[in-house]
Design a protein around this nucleic acid. Structure first.
Lengths: 186, 186
DNA sequence: GATGTATGAATGAACG
DNA sequence: CGTTCATTCATACATC
C-alpha cells in the first residue's frame, strides 16, 4: 500500500470546488477547469495546436495545477470518446443494449496482420519473413460522421485556428457569453 | 455499420510472448524488447536504416514476436515524443515546476509488465523465463555491418566487430548483454 | 470493500 | 517528420 505522501500535495489553488481527495497521482481537473475545457470542446475545438494548448493550460492554471500535457490528453481523450460514443449510439429508442462494456467494442475485426498501407518507407519491410500482402487500402476512412450540429462550430474554430490572433474572434461565441472570453486567450 | 459485432474477434495471432492485454491487435513489446530498443535509442540511434531495422527486429524476435515495422514505428514514435515532451513540458505557471509530478520522460513504458495486480482476475498464467536457445545464428544476419558512429561506442563497436562471433554467439548472455555487445548485431 | 464506470495517461499505428 | 487516430492501461470515483 502506498500512502501517497502526507502533505506534499498542496494544491495551490483552493478552487477545487467539488473534488474530493486531491492526491495528485494524476491530474484531477477541477470543476472549473472541466467547465472551461468542455466549453471549448463544445465550441468546436477538437485538436488544439501547441500554442493553444499553452494558452489553455496557462489559463486553467488559475483554477488549479495543470500542465500542458493534461490539456493535450484531455482533448485527445474527449474527442476519441465522443466518437466512440457516437458510433455505438445507434437508435437509442430502446436502450436494450446498454453496452455492458464500453471498452470492449473491438468492432474493427482485428486488422492486425494486414493493416499497414503501402507507405514508401515501410515498403522495405514488405518481405518480412512470410509474404505479407498489404491489402491495398482503397478507402479506409469511414469518417465524416457528424451526427449533431458540431460542424458549424468547426468552421468557426477553423477560422480561429488559422488566425490565432486572439483579437479577430468575432462570431465564435454564439451561445455562452463567457465562451467568448474563454476563447480569447486562444 | 458493423459496430457491436462481437463475433469479430478472431484472434488469429498465434502466441504472444505472454504479454498481458495481448488480444490480437497491436504489437506489445516485451520488457526485454523495450530494454534493447531503449538502449539503442540512448546510444544515439534515432533513425535506423532499413538494414538496421531488419537486424534489430530479427534480434528482438528472440524475445517475442515482432516485425520490422514495429521497430520502425517504435523509433519514429520515440523520437517524435522525445521532442514533444520537451516542447510541452510546461504550462503550469502556478507554482514551481518540480512538484510531485513524475517526470513524464520517455520511459514509463515499463508498466505493462506488472499490471494484473488489482482485480484483474484474468488468468495470469505465469510466463516465466522460458529457456530459448539462440536461434541458429548462422552469421548471415549479423554480418558485421558497420554502425554509423554512435557516441563513444565506436571503439567498442570496433572490438565487437572483430570478434565476429557468428556461430559462437551462444556464449554471450542474451538475457542481459552489455550494450556494446547488444549493438553488435547492428 | 469489491465491482463497475469515468477518465487520465500511455503508446502503437497511421496519416498528410 | 510532425500530427493525429486508435487502443489499451491505470486510477479516481461512484455505487451497492
Amino acid at each position: 500500500m502506498e500512502m501517497e505522501g502526507e502533505a506534499g500535495v498542496v494544491m495551490s489553488g483552493g478552487f477545487n470546488a467539488g473534488r474530493v481527495g486531491v492526491k495528485c497521482g494524476r491530474w484531477n481537473p477541477t470543476t472549473e477547469q472541466v467547465k472551461v475545457l468542455m466549453d471549448l470542446f463544445r465550441a468546436g475545438l477538437r485538436t488544439p495546436s501547441t500554442e493553444q494548448i499553452q494558452r489553455i493550460s496557462n489559463h486553467l492554471s488559475y483554477f488549479g495545477k495543470v500542465e500542458s500535457k493534461n490539456v493535450f490528453y484531455w482533448f485527445q481523450n474527449h474527442k476519441a470518446r465522443e466518437r466512440h460514443h457516437k458510433k455505438r449510439r445507434r437508435g437509442s429508442s430502446s436502450d436494450e443494449e446498454a453496452e455492458t462494456e464500453h471498452k470492449f467494442v473491438i468492432s474493427p475485426d482485428c486488422k492486425r496482420e494486414a493493416k499497414l498501407n503501402h507507405r514508401s518507407v515501410l515498403s522495405n519491410f514488405a518481405k518480412e519473413e512470410e509474404q505479407i500482402t498489404w491489402p491495398e487500402r482503397t478507402g479506409r476512412d469511414i469518417e465524416t460522421l457528424e451526427l449533431f450540429p458540431l460542424k458549424a462550430y468547426d468552421l468557426e474554430m477553423e477560422k480561429v485556428r488559422c488566425t490565432r490572433t486572439t483579437t479577430e474572434i468575432k462570431e465564435i461565441s454564439i451561445f455562452n457569453p463567457p465562451l467568448e472570453l474563454r476563447l480569447s486567450f486562444l
